[in-house]
């Protein structure tokens, strides 16, 4: 990077997520898992992980990228791609209205944000899901942004990382959404052809069409602690098999035990672990 680029402000300014909760943003925050009362700023400094019980709270897409990427040299990819309501889908709500409402509440225009940048100086492309945007569902925009992100990785010889948090395929775009499963996996074959790493990080929740497409195709598959990960939702399974589900079913720890994922990574170690795995795969010296 030239001295001039270093002086310039980063292309992407971090947007603050509008506060959507009914309670005004206060000084205090109560942990939803252990009920500990915490300083809001402490929680934020701890990457939204409860310092008392280690519960990993959800992180919006842009905040996630902020946590992961080095401050300098970030460039957003695919933000020019915007959703359309191709089926004129309408149930009790219009899909077009839902898009508008989700945009207003999240500050994003669809459920994925992709950025090129670096982690501990290791250059990468990272895609992150915005779960609060219609359940992080994958429709045409998510698929296309994913593809554009992988293409940038291929053109620049970079590893690709995807942070999943999604309920699955987006119903309101019909079969177009299902086809995004095939589309995202097809572009990953090109990344694999160039022997560039794909790291898949599964966070709470990773279900349905996202789980059953690229989520487990990672060269290395990581998960955050306690994340719900699976193909079918627990309620659907319970109704189908009419049995009580085993303890911890479909949680990260369960998946690790069943051999479905490589490792569970605490969010506070994530940057280091990602950099370690990437430098090891690329036969480069360790960074920290």
């Amino acid at each position: 990077m030239s001295w001039l680029q270093k002086l310039l402000p980063p292309k992407i300014k971090s947007r603050t997520t509008p506060n959507t909760s009914a309670v005004p943003e206060g000084l205090w925050s109560k942990c939803s898992a252990c009920s500990a009362v915490l300083y809001r700023s402490d929680l934020e400094n701890n990457l939204e992980v409860c310092p008392k019980c280690n519960f990993h709270n959800a992180v919006p897409a842009r905040a996630r990228l902020n946590q992961l990427l080095d401050v300098e040299g970030r460039y957003e990819i695919g933000s020019e791609v915007k959703p359309v309501d191709v089926l004129k889908f309408k149930a009790n709500k219009r899909y077009s209205d839902q898009l508008t409402a989700s945009a207003a509440s999240t500050g994003e225009d669809d459920a994925m944000v992709v950025m090129q940048g670096s982690i501990l100086s290791v250059p990468v492309v990272v895609a992150a899901f915005e779960y609060k945007f219609i359940g992080g569902s994958m429709g045409s925009v998510v698929g296309e942004r994913f593809v554009r992100g992988v293409k940038v990785a291929i053109e620049n010889d970079l590893p690709f990382i995807c942070v999943s948090a999604s309920g699955g395929a987006r119903m309101m775009e019909g079969l177009n959404s299902l086809m995004q499963m095939a589309k995202t996996n097809a572009i990953l074959t090109k990344l694999a052809d160039k022997k560039l790493p794909f790291i898949s990080l599964l966070t709470d929740p990773t279900m349905g069409g996202v789980s059953a497409s690229f989520a487990f195709i990672g060269d290395v598959v990581m998960a955050e602690p306690g994340a719900l990960i699976g193909f079918a939702g627990p309620r659907v399974i319970e109704q189908t098999v009419r049995e009580t589900l085993p303890e911890g079913f479909q949680r990260s720890e369960f998946l690790l035990e069943k051999g479905a994922i490589d490792m569970i990574v605490d969010r506070r170690e994530l940057r280091q672990r990602l950099a370690d795995v990437l430098t090891l795969l690329n036969n480069q010296a360790a960074v920290n």
Binding site: E80, V81, G139, S140, V141, E173, A182, K183
Partner: peptide, 11 residues
């Protein structure tokens, strides 16, 4: 496969 999906492009 790459053709699948409908979206618009804006600067």
């Amino acid at each position: 496969l790459m053709e699948h999906g409908k979206f618009k492009e804006e600067a």
